[in-house]
């Protein structure tokens, strides 16, 4: 209610929305990667990691970020347990 009356106090606003979307788009643009390619990479990375450790495919996160005009690929793969050798 208060946020409707005074939109500038709301943390979710048109300004931050624009910036959030831009950062995401530019990270992809700069790396020359589209969402399909990211999905393919995700699947392949998952496959490789799964050979060594037990993971939950649903929990893996792969994201692109861009800072100072450099793109960075970030994978977050929670490990359930290391597979026994052999």
């Amino acid at each position: 209610m208060l946020e409707k009356l005074f939109p500038w106090v709301s943390p979710v606003n048109s300004r931050s929305e624009a910036k959030r979307r831009l950062k995401l788009i530019l990270a992809h643009d700069r790396a020359g990667l589209n969402p399909q390619m990211i999905e393919l990479m995700r699947a392949e990375i998952l496959e490789v990691v799964a050979r060594y450790v037990e993971i939950d495919p649903e929990e893996m996160e792969l994201s692109l970020e861009s800072n100072e005009r450099i793109s960075c690929l970030m994978a977050n793969v929670p490990i359930r347990r290391v597979k026994a050798k052999g």
């Binding site: 606003n13 048109s14 300004r15 910036k19």
Partner: peptide, 10 residues
């Protein structure tokens, strides 16, 4: 100022 648009810093 109303957070309706990006500013220069953004």
């Amino acid at each position: 100022q109303m957070n309706e648009m990006m500013g220069v810093d953004d």
